[in-house]
Amino acid sequence: MTESASQDGTTLIRPEIEAGSLKATEQVDVERKLSIVERISNINSVRKLTVLLVLIVLWEAYTKLAEVEELLFPPFSATLITLWDTIQTGELFEKIWITVAILVQGYVAGMVLGAVLLVFAVMSRVGSDFLSTMTAMFQPLPAISLLPLAILWFDLGAPSLIFVTIHSVLWAVALSTHVGFMSVSMTQRMVGQNYGLRGVSYIAKILVPAAFGSILTGMKIGWAFAWRTIIGAELVFGAQSGKGGLGWMIYEKGDNLETTYVFAALFTVIVIGLLVENFLFRNVEMWTINKWGMQR
């Protein structure tokens, strides 16, 4: 357009343009029904399920066609059969129960300890300093590295697993909650003081609801670390003792080259992880921060 614009003194004058006709629009579909394939492929869950199926088919085809040794990489069908077997014999549920029982004990104990530390931290400055120093120290320390010491102190068995689980939950929850408490707005604090709330009731009625978003984040991180720690701990245990839950099953079957069992156990670990993350925590979120309008 610049070529046709003529220079007249200091002002640029563009040529006038008049569009002849807008024919094209008349021949185009303004509205069109999508084809069935398009409509189906617009459903999110259908697409994702297809991806999953494709992956499974690829896996099965690869192992069958390339004749991969079952010891190295079992086909999907064999994994499924083994999974069904372990479910029927009850072996799987037994292992799940061992792992989950220890996990829950450690998680609850970690939360209680974290709560005690936090109450001190909120009530006194020394407590606050103590908590932040301790979290800064222990948060970067992988809980699993305490396992050799735990075995030394508590012997092989559930107590040492619970000890490392506590360690993995405690600092993540304490850190996140402490940060959450500190960022509770002055307005809400003053509302609490107006009501004459002090000490524990102040924490329970003002700080906890106000900081619930970060508490939940801490609990989620704590869960993720605890889950990883307990599986890892059972693997390490596997080398030293002779019984345990899912992690131990993975280790033992791996050691005996019963690879289908390893895959079945891995499946179970994934399923439990998905259940806790997408079912348990999602529901807690819906009942609390979503319902309270703190998070959309």
Partner: peptide, 24 residues
């Protein structure tokens, strides 16, 4: 779709659980 499915599946799996397979 591939990415969301894979992350949803594999993110909850502790990496350490794959070590026995990795050793094989």
């Amino acid at each position: 779709d591939l990415l969301t499915t894979l992350t949803a599946m594999l993110n909850p799996l502790p990496a350490i659980a794959l070590l026995p397979m990795a050793m094989i």
